[in-house]
Amino acid sequence: MSLVATGLVKHYPVRGSDSVVHALDDVSLELAPGETLGIVGESGCGKSTLAKVLVRLEEPTSGTVVLDGVDLTALSGAELRRQRRRIQMVFQDPYSSLNPRKSVGSALEEVLIVHGFGSSAAERRSRVRELLELVGLSPTFAARLPHELSGGQRQRVGIARALAVEPSVLILDEPVSALDVSVRAEVMNLLSGLQKTLGLSFIFISHDVSMVRQISDRVAVMYLGRIVELGGWKPVLDEPLHPYTEGLRASVPVPDPTVHQAIQATVRGEVPNPVNPPAGCRFHPRCPAAVDACLTVMPQLTEVHPQHEVACHVAVAEGHLPLRAITS
């Protein structure tokens, strides 16, 4: 495994009270070299907090993140900076993380300097050209300012910057969500290509089920700070076991008018307040299949089929998606 996260918990204090926001609650995952793990969920499910904890932009309340055998959560200072280089993040809008007065070239060079890459200015400039080429931009882009770039070009620069320090793992947090449909295809294909040529592992975080389905080897579905389903992309997204995954999937409008799509709400109500999450299964207030146990006992991820885990009392008991969740 290149990345192993175990029992990650992240609580944020609520100002002026003793309560906490349960952003992440006992999340464990593994990532093999060259693999893409998709993480899908809606606002408040903890997917962005998970990203930040994995790269240690945020300190976990408890739990560990081990990268190639090194426990990142135990490190600090210079050693952390040195190790963290191997796990890099790409954000939804790279514009917000680029200095508007700095050219693309000098932004990339800066990253190389900070991390001690390249012994001379000439060497670094040639590395910048290489990086731009790697993401499909001509070397002339080095002189451009961020506002002169289109959304797709900016995201390419964001990817180049993440690759500058030669990471083995990329955390991609909604990398194509701000892009237009036709540009999305380019960036998705670029990511797949880079993964093959550089042997990278990806954690691809998105609310967009269709993009997660396109790129992932395995998929984790998150709801209110917990992973509720985990397994291969096909079983999880096309034959889900958790009523929430099914509801999420059925809510995505399919771009094909010949597919019968009932316009009715598949998941009732809204995501509860993470300060005071429901007892038992956190999805039970919205779940069409909930039974008594769901109100009091929190379901744990359980392997129902080989390599396919689900945290749902009913699905575990029946061995398949609860019937009521499909029919209601």
Binding site: H207, I263, E270
Partner: peptide, 14 residues
Amino acid sequence: LDVTIQQQILALVA
């Protein structure tokens, strides 16, 4: 909006 909420709004408008 989230897709499950979008779905509720689409249903309402329909």
